[in-house]
Design a protein around this nucleic acid. Structure first.
Lengths: 114, 114
DNA sequence: TGACAATATCACTAAACTGTGATATTGTAA
DNA sequence: TTACAATATCACAGTTTAGTGATATTGTCA
């Protein structure tokens, strides 16, 4: 259970963490890193995002404590350091799927199966 | 497990849900509603936010499918309709606490207990 | 009907954010 | 040292967002 009473500092920190997750490009980066931790240039290729943008978003993710960076010579290797983000995404994805299913039911009630 | 491959539509929907959670005022409203579902005017009193603001944020939360509204005469009663948001907040809060603890350890290593 | 209360919406301002080209930084290797 | 590659940072434009006072909408009651 979340603490039953939260203070403003806690709510602010919570909001900042959600902000880090509230962008499609950053989610794409996390999703990509999940398949394989990799270097910045690889992230650019895999995601199709530009280098400056990838670096910027990685900075935000790192600042939120979601990814870790490790310099290897000329390269920087990024890893996800908070697997809980995938639990969280799973919970939200399930909710979204339920929502969509419910919306369909409004048009095609009683159809069973998917 | 989250689907191992997500498409842009899914990532976008995910980002939009996190956006709804990425604001301190909205988290405060959710937190308040969690103690007791209530009417808009009560929310204004309990949170100290202005009426126009509360209505606006409630609209965003409702649009994200996080709260439900039920008109009762002149009043509108709001309820949280997605308890999973508390699981999510709990996961994030635990992470934040771990982060803070780790940060403390950098200054006061080996102190045990809290 | 008219007066009033609760809530939602509008129009606006100030602040924050995304993506980008250009540039700075950091490391390698000759 | 110099040249070069990978990444981070800067400065900027365009977009989005939160909060607010004013107003519109919706419902109650007399």
């Amino acid at each position: 259970m979340v603490k039953s009473l939260m203070n403003n500092t806690q709510l602010g920190a919570l909001a900042r963490t959600f902000s880090a997750l509230a962008d499609q490009s950053r989610l794409l980066i996390l999703h990509t890193l999940r398949q394989n931790p990799c270097y910045v240039n690889e992230l650019c290729e895999k995601t199709g995002l530009k280098q400056a943008n990838v670096s910027k978003q990685l900075g935000i993710l790192k600042n939120a404590g979601l990814v870790d960076a490790q310099r290897q010579g000329n390269l920087v290797h990024y890893t996800i350091c908070e697997p809980i983000i995938f639990e969280i995404c799973e919970l939200v994805c399930n909710k979204l799927e339920r929502d969509a299913r419910r919306r369909l039911e409004d048009f095609a009630p009683a159809k069973r199966g998917q």
